[in-house]
Measured scan of single mutants.
Amino acid sequence: TTLTVNTQTYTFTSEEEAREFARRYGAKTIRKTNGTWEVHG
């Protein structure tokens, strides 16, 4: 199964959650914005 996250942004309140998600789905960018963490595919 392949998950494609081209134009979607996922927002997390903790860096740990964001990094775990990025690691699991191979997202390329993690960015902190206004106190939340954004993961970009």
Rank of each mutant, 00 (worst) to 15 (best):
N6P: 13
V39M: 01
E38G: 02
E38W: 04
I30Y: 05
I30D: 02
T29I: 15
K28I: 14
R23T: 08
T13D: 12
F12R: 00
W37T: 01
R24F: 06
T33W: 07
V39Q: 00
T4K: 10
E20L: 05
H40A: 11
F12Q: 00
G35M: 03
T36N: 09
E38K: 02
T2K: 12
R23H: 10
W37S: 00
N34Q: 04
G26D: 04
A27L: 15
T9H: 10
F21K: 01
T36D: 06
T29V: 15
T13G: 07
R23I: 07
V5M: 08
F12M: 00
H40Y: 14
G35K: 03
T7N: 11
Q8D: 09
E15G: 02
W37E: 00
T9D: 05
R19I: 12
T33A: 13
R31Q: 11
W37Y: 04
T7K: 07
T7H: 14
S14L: 03
R24T: 06
A22Q: 03
V39R: 00
T29H: 11
R23V: 07
K28P: 08
T29P: 08
A18Q: 00
Y25P: 00
R19A: 06
K32N: 11
R24C: 10
G41I: 15
E20Y: 03
E17D: 08
F12N: 00
A27C: 15
T1N: 13
E15R: 04
V39Y: 01
S14K: 04
R24I: 10
F12G: 00
E38Q: 06
Y10Q: 05
I30L: 05
K32P: 04
A18D: 00
T1G: 13
V5Y: 06
T36P: 01
T2D: 13
V39G: 01
E20F: 03
G41M: 15
A22I: 03
R24A: 06
T2H: 14
T9P: 09
T2G: 14
R24K: 13
A18N: 00
R23C: 15
T33F: 08
T36K: 11
N6I: 12
Y10M: 08
I30E: 04
T11Y: 13
T4A: 12
T29K: 05
A22K: 01
K32R: 08
L3W: 03
L3D: 13
E16D: 08
R31T: 13
R19K: 09
E38V: 11
T9R: 09
F21D: 01
H40S: 14
E17L: 06
K32I: 08
F21P: 00
V39F: 01
G41P: 11
E17R: 03
E38R: 01
E16V: 07
T1R: 08
T4G: 14
V5K: 12
T11R: 08
H40T: 15
N6Q: 09
Q8S: 09
